[in-house]
């Protein structure tokens, strides 16, 4: 019966439900962009430069890929709370705080995987680039371009992780109805309240989004293998 209720909710185009889905997508897409703005250049920088402590940075990035979302939520909460160092921004319990938390969660993933992709390509291309006299800027551009399909799948992986995450956004967003309530926090709340149709309906949407993202990632890989080698 709950399943039927869920479908009728979805099919009736319940505005509250769609507002929640829209906010979820907005928060997660913004977080991916923010994380990529940091993770992509940082990953490429670590891949292409030698500096003291580089090994440590790589180990740290890899370790940070597994950051527990609730811990990230807690840290962002502490930083943004009224008495915290960034309290003056007034971001706590806003979508902005949720974007920051998700971005922190996935920035290490994007940075670590970008580092891996760019470095692997660089090892392959190094001699050719040196022999062809490619300028430093030209090298970075060529590596990013030739790694573009792998990079897109990295962004999609980050999107998937952020979209499915509940702990961090719950803590820093506060799950405020109509303002910071996203799919995952709504599912958690409505399930505990016993409102199963909404929880199941949102669960289905979430699964559909994750499946769609993975299908997209897979297609990108297939396409790139066929067309770019």
């Amino acid at each position: 019966m709950d399943g039927v209720g869920a479908f009728s909710l979805l099919l009736s185009g319940d505005p509250a439900l769609f507002a929640i889905v829209r906010l979820s997508l907005f928060v997660t897409l913004s977080a991916v962009m923010l994380a990529a703005a940091f993770g992509l250049p940082f990953g490429a920088f670590v891949a292409l430069t030698q500096f003291r402590g580089r090994g440590g940075v790589i180990v740290a990035l890899n370790a940070l890929m597994g950051l527990p979302p609730v811990v990230v939520g807690l840290l962002v909460f502490l930083a943004l709370s009224r008495s915290g160092p960034l309290g003056f921004l007034g971001l706590l319990f806003t979508p902005g705080a949720m974007i920051i938390a998700q971005a922190i969660l996935i920035a290490p993933i994007i940075a670590a995987l970008t580092r891996q992709v760019i470095e692997d390509l660089w090892v392959e291309y190094c001699d050719e680039f040196t022999a062809m006299d490619v300028s430093p800027l030209g090298r970075v551009a060529a590596l990013l371009w030739d790694g573009r399909f792998s990079l897109v799948t990295i962004f999609l992986a980050g999107f998937g992780r952020a979209a499915a995450e509940v702990g961090a956004v719950m803590i820093v967003g506060g799950n405020i109805d109509g303002f910071t309530r996203v799919m995952t926090t709504t599912i958690a709340l409505e399930t505990s309240k016993g409102n199963l149709p909404l929880a199941i309906g949102l669960g289905l949407v979430l699964i559909a989004i994750v499946v769609a993202v993975n299908t997209l990632a897979w297609s990108v890989r297939q396409w790139s293998e066929r067309h770019a080698g």
Binding site: E124, M132, D133, S135, A142, D146, A228
Partner: peptide, 20 residues
């Protein structure tokens, strides 16, 4: 063991041209 850029045959030559 030459390494091909992940691009078309022609684009590999274009790349070498512009790098030079």
């Amino acid at each position: 063991k030459p390494v091909m850029l992940k691009r078309s045959t022609a684009a590999n030559v274009s790349f070498a041209l512009s790098a030079a």
